[in-house]
Simulated scan of single mutants.
Amino acid sequence: MKHILVLVLALGITLTAKAQSYHGKKITDNGAIPATELATKMGEKKELTTKVEGTVDQVCKVKGCWMTVKTADGKTMRVTFKDYGFFVPKDIAGKQVVFEGVAQTTTTPVAELRHYAEDAGKSKAEIEKITEPEKALTFVADGVIVKK
């Protein structure tokens, strides 16, 4: 009976460990705020160190070097990874993630927006329609948890 209990416990721990994957700095999901509340929490600040939870909208198709996460206003926030030091799986669109780092209000130049569009697999016509820089909430993450 003791052997069965140990086996069941070991199996449970193994399955729980595989229920999420970690990328970059190992973080926990404790204290994460919903991505839909981040803009309100930022207020007028230019920068805020925090932990956020949200749903992935898109991922860089080239190597997983950025992702976008849905926000409250129907828009998305681009999440990049500190010092280009890690990547996320390219197939996580629609999955829940938790990420920790620095939220910023930034202006992204046209050339960079076109680069992101190319990474996302947009057509040449769609890329050429990008003619204005974009002011938006962005995030530089130290670590990401992908929940399965």
Rank of each mutant, 00 (worst) to 15 (best):
H3E: 15
I4L: 15
L7K: 07
L11I: 13
L15N: 10
T16Y: 15
A19K: 06
Q20T: 10
Q20Y: 12
H23N: 03
I27S: 04
T28V: 06
D29K: 15
D29T: 11
G31D: 06
G31S: 02
A32D: 06
A35E: 00
T36P: 04
T36S: 14
E37S: 15
L38C: 09
L38D: 09
G43Y: 03
K45N: 14
T49G: 13
T50K: 03
K51V: 08
V52Q: 00
T55S: 08
D57F: 01
D57V: 09
Q58L: 10
V62C: 12
G64D: 00
W66C: 03
M67T: 04
V69I: 07
V69P: 01
T71E: 05
G74D: 01
M77I: 07
T80Q: 07
T80C: 07
T80L: 01
F81C: 02
K82Y: 13
G85F: 09
F86G: 09
F87E: 11
D91S: 06
Q96N: 14
V97W: 10
G101C: 02
V102A: 13
Q104K: 14
T106M: 09
V110W: 01
R114H: 01
K122T: 03
S123E: 06
K124Y: 11
A125L: 03
A125V: 07
A125I: 04
E126N: 08
E128H: 12
E128K: 15
T131D: 10
T131F: 09
L137D: 07
T138K: 02
V140H: 07
V140L: 08
V144W: 04
I145E: 00
I145V: 05
V146R: 07
K147H: 02
